[in-house]
Amino acid sequence: MSKNKTFIEIAKALGISPSTVSRALNDHPRISNETKQKVKKLALELDFTLNPMASSFRSNKTQTIGIIVPRISFYFHATVLTVVQNLLWKEGYQLIICQSNDSPEVEKELVNTLYASRVDGVIAATTLYTTDFSHYDILTRKQIPLVFYDRVPVNYYPAQIVKGDDYKGGFEAAEHLIKLGCKSIAHISGPLTCNLYKDRYAGYIDALKKYKIPYRQEMVFFHELSMDNAVESIQKIFKMETKPDGIFTANDTSAIGALMVARELGIEVPKEFKIVGYSNDPRSSIISPGITTIDQHPEIVGQQLAITILDLIRGTETKVELITEPTITPITLTIRESSKVL
């Protein structure tokens, strides 16, 4: 029996339209669970199954969206993924999750794979070292909606952008330490090829300038923000003749590393040394003393990403015409014991 005849037969038997039968078999979110169950039960009795691949070729839509993240293990990206997936599922879309492992080569391959998979849109947080974005051109040429988030192109690229207010986060972190009386503030950041660390570093610099606090190049480090790298840099800082009385690290892993080194050296936190991290990783709240940090609100980022990609997919204009100024999501200074006045 042909698919159309089966749709009509099911529709007549249940007193609904053939289009409702189609939507029910495709798990459309606007069709009630009761109707879906009735349709699927009767379809099973008629030995009918829907071919989603054939359906996607006819409609030119696959109801899938791809997302590329640097590392799924990062708290921020894991939270964003969960929010995006849940919201897209409610709208009838499946999320294909890809991990670049911070490799530009892998990122390029993933873009090509998602294009070949005929996804309806792509969301991407680039690697630390991506400076050439031409591998995304295949998407923009084919008018496939593209949204960059968190780690985004530093220069203009014809895609929508959702990013946190990293400059403000860096400024508020340094300003907080300054207002607590810190005069020698170290900074550990990621590679400046990445917009995140470029903006956080700029905020830190401007806070020092505003309050006329000396900038000390020897107390500033740029590298991947792993625990080992952080510990090595902080050990170097404490061997200097002039010791730091505060530190702003561009992630919470490095902030925890700073706390570990301070403990080993018998330096009291926050009495002698104050610490501010970035991201509000859950570990920053359960360690003792708790780490003051910048909350990036990944839930808000995830919500904005889902809204943005769906607006682009459903837009009737060309995708380039729909591009607006970057959407800036909020940050919040979350104060804990590592920087409190005793």
Rank of each mutant, 00 (worst) to 15 (best):
L46F: 11
L46N: 14
L46K: 15
D47Q: 14
D47R: 15
F48K: 09
F48H: 13
F48P: 12
T49Q: 14
T49N: 15
T49E: 10
T49H: 12
L50F: 07
L50N: 09
N51V: 02
N51Q: 02
P52C: 05
P52H: 08
A54N: 06
A54F: 01
S55Y: 05
S55K: 15
S56P: 09
S56W: 00
F57P: 12
R58H: 06
R58E: 04
R58F: 04
R58W: 00
R58P: 05
N60P: 08
N60A: 13
K61S: 15
T62F: 00
T62Q: 03
Q63H: 15
I65G: 06
G66Y: 02
I67D: 02
I68C: 09
V69S: 05
P70R: 08
R71P: 03
I72R: 05
F74T: 14
Y75V: 11
Y75F: 07
F76G: 08
F76S: 09
F76E: 07
F76H: 10
H77E: 11
H77Q: 13
H77T: 13
H77N: 15
V80L: 03
L81F: 02
L81V: 12
T82R: 12
T82W: 01
V83I: 13
V84Q: 01
V84C: 03
V84T: 06
V84S: 04
Q85N: 13
Q85K: 11
N86R: 10
L87F: 04
L87R: 13
L88S: 02
L88Y: 00
W89K: 14
W89D: 09
K90S: 07
Y93V: 04
Q94P: 05
L95N: 01
L95I: 01
I96G: 08
I97N: 01
C98M: 12
Q99W: 02
Q99H: 08
S100E: 06
N101E: 10
N101V: 05
S103T: 10
P104V: 10
P104Q: 09
